[in-house]
Design a binder for these strands. Structure first.
Length: 770
DNA sequence: GATGACTGCCC
DNA sequence: ATTCTGC
DNA sequence: GCAGAATGGGCAGTCATC
C-alpha cells in the first residue's frame, strides 16, 4: 500500500513536493536558476569572498601558505566538478561584489522566497526559543494539526536554512540536525529528526541521499572497500592549529578541557570574526572532501590532508565545524548510530508503516551492509521490494552473529530452552573469518567488521578451493594461529603478528587453522533463516576436513548445567577462551537479534574466574565525551619489592559506574603530582601523575608480554614487561597499601601459569627431548 | 635504510 | 574487547 | 534488552624525519 506511494515519491520527487519551484520550470537543477537571478549572483560573490578570506588569513606562519591555499582551492575546484559545476566555471568572470549588505539582502530574499516556495505550510507558531520539552510538544502539536504529514513535520530548526528543490543539500541542514539530535536523549525523537532531514533531502536533493546517510553514520564507503581517512587526533591538532593561528599545544590543552575536538573547532570559528560570507558547505562537498582526504596517500600526503581540512573549516560555520571535525575523528558522538540511522531511513521512506519498513531496511542492511547498493535499489524499487534486490550473496560480507557475555551457567540455562537444547562450542582465540566462495571460483575473506581480509589469507583461499564440495558458499569461522610442527593452537598475540598484506604464500610466517562453525549460504541458497541445526548439517556436508587447515569447531550439544561445566573446563584446557553457546533452533537473523549467541569465559564468572590483581593507581587521564570534566581512565602499577619501585601494568577505563568515576575523580585530584616519583618505572605518561596511595582490584582475561608497560620486566622477558588483556575495574581495596599490591613476582607467576604459556612450555620441553 | 609517531583494526 | 546507562 | 558510548592491549602499515 504505502509502497506505491514511496516508489513514486522516490522516482519523481518533484511532482510530490516543491510544487511551485520545480513544476513550473521542470528543468535540471543546473538550469533551474536563470543566469541573471539574484541567487546566482550571490553565489558568484560568495566564491570571491572565500578566496579573499583565504588570501587575507592573518596567521601566515609559513611563507608558502598562500600558495598552498591557492593550490588547495584549485584542486578543490577540479574535484568538485561533479558536485557543483556552476561555481567553478564562474569564478573568473564574476564581478566585484563589494558590498556585504547586498549579500545579506540576497540571503533574505532567498530565505523569503524559500518560505513562499516551500509549501502552503501554515506559519510556524510564534514561540520563543524553548526548552527541549516544549519543542517536543510543539512537534507533536504540529503533527496533530497536520494537513499533510510531510510538510508539518518539518522541524523548526531547519526552517531558516536556504535550500530549494534542486539545490545541493546544504551541510548546514545536516549539522543542525545532528546538533539537535545531540541535545535530545530520546532515541525515537533522534530518529525522527534524522528521518525528517532525510525526507527533505530526498525531496529536494535526491542525489544527496547517499552522502547524507554516509555522513550520518560517519562512514565513507562500505567497510569492505577498505577506504581509510588516515586522519587521527594528532593530524587534527595540527590542522586546527594552522586554521586558527594557534599552537598545537594550545589546541591540545583546549581539547583536554573541552573533551571534544569538534567543540574546540566550533569555538575557534566563533572567535574568528569572519568579515565575509563564506561559501556554503554542502552535504556533497563535505562528503567528497572527506573522501578526497581518504584518498590522499604517499609523500607529503599528510600536509595535503591538513590543507584540505583547513579548506573545509574555512567554509564551516558554527556547528558545521564541529561535525566536520567529528567526522574526521571518527566519532559523531550524538547518541545515534547505525541502527538508528537505518530506522530513520526506513521511516523517511515509509512513515505510514515505519515499523515494517524498519524491519526490512535493517534486515537488508544486515545481509548487504552497503548503502552504495541499498540506496539505488531503494529509490528504484521501494522499501517493500528492497530485500529481493539486495539479496544475501557471496562477495558481499554480511553482519556476523555476535554473542552476549554471560556471568555463569545459570544465566545460560535461563536463556535457553533446555528441551530443544543448545550447542557448546569452543571459543577460539583468533580472528573472525567470513569465507565466501563465489560462483566464478573466487574466494573472499571478510573480517568481523566486513573488512576485506582476502589478501591477508591467501593460504586459506587456496585451501578452500581444494576442500570445497560445493559451488558457492558463505562460511562463518575463526582463523587461529597454528603451530604446524606441534599441531597446536597458538595464542592470539602470535596471530596478530601476521602480515596484513601477503605478497607470497611462501612468506607466511604464522600459519592458521580455520575453525568453521556456521554456514550462511550454500549453492545459491541463503541459510540465515534456517535453524542452526540445519545450517550445521549443511556445513558438514559441504567441506572436507583437513587437520591444521580447516576443521569444525569442537562442540557438543547440551541440555544441562553439568555438561556445560565439563565442556567449559575442557575448552580452557584446549587453549580456548571459553564456550560459545547457541540454541539449536536459532536462526542467523542479525536484524532480529544481533547477539543471539552467548559466550561464557572463565573470567566472566564471579566465582574465582579469571585473574584479578590489586594495583596501585599512579596516573589519570582526562575524560572525553560524556566523561568530560572528570577522569576517564587511569594508569595502574604493580609493586616490585626487589627494586622497590612501581611498575606500570595497564591503563584502566571501564568497570566503574558514572557515580564511582565522579568519586574517584574527587578522591584522586588532590593526589596529583607534577612529576612522577623516582620509583615509578614507566614508559608511558598519563595526563596527570598521582601519588601512589590507592589500590584497586582489577580483573583481566589474560596477561601478555608488553612493549609499553614495565611490570615484571626481566622476569618473563629480558626487557619487555607484562600487561593485562581486557582490564576492568572490580572494586576499591581500601584495606591495601601500595606495598600490599600484587607484586612483580606474582605478575610473572600469573603470566607463566596461563594455560597457553604452560602448553607452549610443555611442547618446548618435549621438543628438547627429541 | 632506520626509526619513531601516528593510525586503523584486530581482539 | 568490557562495561555502564538511558530508553 | 537494545543501542550507544566510554574505555583497554597490541599488532602491521604508513609516512615523516633523520
Amino acid at each position: 500500500m504505502s509502497q506505491r506511494s514511496i516508489t513514486s515519491f522516490f522516482s519523481k520527487p518533484s511532482q510530490k513536493i516543491c510544487t511551485s519551484a520545480v513544476e513550473k520550470k521542470e528543468k535540471s537543477p543546473e538550469s533551474i536558476i536563470p543566469e541573471d537571478s539574484p541567487i546566482k549572483q550571490q553565489r558568484k560573490r560568495r566564491r570571491i569572498y572565500v578566496d579573499e578570506e583565504d588570501e587575507q588569513r592573518p596567521s601566515s606562519t609559513d611563507s608558502t601558505e598562500n600558495e598552498i591555499d591557492d593550490v588547495v582551492n584549485k584542486e578543490n575546484n577540479n574535484d568538485n566538478i561533479k558536485v557543483d559545476k556552476e561555481e567553478d566555471t564562474e569564478v573568473e568572470n564574476s564581478f566585484d561584489g563589494n558590498d556585504k549588505n547586498t549579500d545579506i539582502q540576497q540571503e533574505e530574499v532567498e530565505t523569503i522566497k524559500e518560505e513562499c516556495e516551500s509549501e502552503n505550510e501554515k506559519k510556524p507558531e510564534k514561540k520563543p526559543k524553548s526548552s527541549e520539552k516544549s519543542k517536543a510538544k510543539s512537534s507533536k502539536k504540529k503533527k496533530k494539526a497536520k494537513i499533510s504529514p510531510k510538510k508539518s513535520e518539518r522541524p523548526k530548526f531547519l526552517d531558516n536554512i536556504p535550500w530549494k528543490a534542486g539545490d545541493p543539500a546544504p551541510y548546514e541542514a545536516l549539522a543542525a540536525t545532528l546538533s539537535e539530535i545531540e541535545q535530545e536523549s530520546g532515541r525515537l525523537k533522534c530518529i525522527e529528526y534524522l528521518s525528517n532531514l532525510l525526507r527533505l533531502v530526498m525531496e529536494r536533493s535526491p542525489n544527496d541521499t547517499l552522502p547524507t546517510l554516509y555522513l550520518s553514520m560517519n562512514q565513507l564507503a562500505p567497510a569492505s572497500e577498505g577506504l581509510e581517512l588516515g586522519v587521527g587526533e594528532s593530524l587534527l591538532f595540527k590542522a586546527l592549529a594552522q586554521a586558527t593561528g594557534r599552537s598545537v599545544n594550545q589546541i591540545k590543552a583546549e581539547a583536554k578541557s573541552k573533551g571534544d575536538l569538534g567543540v574546540v573547532a566550533e569555538a575557534s570559528r566563533n572567535t574568528q570574526k569572519t568579515m565575509f560570507q563564506p561559501k556554503r558547505l554542502t552535504i556533497q562537498s563535505v562528503y567528497s572532501g572527506l573522501r578526497q582526504i581518504a584518498e590522499m596517500t604517499g609523500n607529503s600526503s599528510m600536509n595535503k590532508k591538513i590543507d584540505k581540512i583547513r579548506f573545509l573549516l574555512a567554509s564551516a560555520k558554527d556547528s558545521e565545524a564541529k561535525f566536520v571535525i567529528r567526522a574526521l575523528t571518527g566519532k559523531l558522538r550524538i547518541g545515534l548510530a547505525e541502527q538508528s540511522v537505518l530506522q530513520a531511513l526506513a521511516s523517511a521512506c515509509d512513515s505510514e508503516n515505519s515499523q515494517l519498513a524498519a524491519d526490512i531496511v535493517k534486515t537488508t542492511y544486515a545481509q548487504c551492509p552497503s548503502f552504495d547498493k541499498i540506496i539505488p535499489n531503494l529509490i528504484k524499487y521501494g522499501v517493500d521490494n528492497l530485500l529481493d534486490h539486495c539479496p544475501l550473496e557471496p562477495g558481499m560480507p554480511l553482519k556476523p552473529m555476535l554473542a552476549h557475555p554471560t556471568k555463569g551457567i545459570d544465566e545460560v540455562l535461563k536463556r535457553f530452552d533446555a528441551k530443544i537444547g543448545f550447542t557448546c562450542e569452543h571459543k577460539y582465540d583468533g580472528e573472525r573469518a567470513q569465507i565466501h566462495l563465489l560462483e566464478d571460483g573466487t574466494v573472499k575473506i571478510y573480517s568481523r567488521n566486513q573488512e576485506d581480509n582476502t589478501i591477508k589469507y591467501p593460504d586459506i583461499v587456496s585451501r578452500i578451493k581444494e576442500l570445497t564440495k560445493v559451488k558457492t558458499a558463505i562460511i562463518d569461522s575463526e582463523a587461529v594461529a597454528w603451530d604446524t610442527n606441534l599441531k597446536r593452537i597458538l595464542p592470539f598475540q602470535m596471530l596478530s603478528t601476521r602480515k596484513k598484506k601477503v605478497d607470497n604464500v611462501g612468506d607466511i610466517k604464522v600459519q592458521v587453522c580455520v575453525y568453521a562453525f556456521d554456514m550462511l549460504y550454500v549453492d545459491g541458497e541463503s541459510l540465515v533463516t534456517k535453524p542452526l541445526k540445519e545450517r550445521r548439517d549443511r556445513l558438514r556436508q559441504s567441506f572436507e576436513i583437513k587437520e591444521g587447515e580447516m576443521v569444525l569447531a569442537t562442540g557438543e550439544d547440551a541440555h544441562d548445567a553439568d555438561t556445560v561445566a565439563v565442556l567449559l573446563d575442557k575448552a580452557i584446557k584446549d587453549s580456548c577462551e571459553g564456550l560459545m553457546l547457541k540454541a539449536l533452533d536459532d536462526t542467523y537473523e542479525i536484524a532480529k537479534r544481533s547477539h543471539s549467541w552467548l559466550k561464557l569465559k572463565k573470567d566472566y564468572l564471579d566465582s574465582a574466574g579469571g585473574d584479578t590483581l590489586d594495583l596501585i593507581v599512579v596516573g589519570a587521564y582526562d575524560g572525553t565525551g560524556k566523561r568530560t570534566g572528570r577522569f576517564g581512565g587511569f594508569l595502574l602499577a604493580c609493586y616490585d619489592s626487589e627494586n622497590e619501585e612501581y611498575q606500570t601494568i595497564c591503563k584502566l577505563g571501564t568497570g566503574f559506574s558514572d557515580e564511582q568515576l565522579d568519586k574517584f575523580t574527587e578522591i584522586l585530584k588532590p593526589l596529583i603530582i607534577e612529576t612522577p616519583k623516582a620509583y615509578y618505572n614507566h614508559k608511558m605518561s598519563p595526563d596527570h601523575w598521582l601519588e601512589g596511595q590507592i589500590v584497586w582490584e582489577v580483573k583481566a582475561a589474560d596477561l601478555s608480554i608488553s612493549p609499553a608497560h614495565t611490570a615484571a620486566a626481566g622476569l618473563v622477558h629480558e626487557e619487555k614487561g607484562v600487561s593485562l588483556r581486557f582490564p576492568r575495574f572490580v572494586r576499591v581495596r581500601d584495606d591495601k597499601k601500595p606495598e600490599d599490591a600484587t607484586s612483580a613476582e606474582q605478575v610473572a607467576g600469573m603470566y607463566k601459569s596461563q594455560e597457553q604459556v604452560q602448553a607452549l612450555n610443555r611442547n618446548e620441553d618435549n621438543s628438547e627431548d627429541y
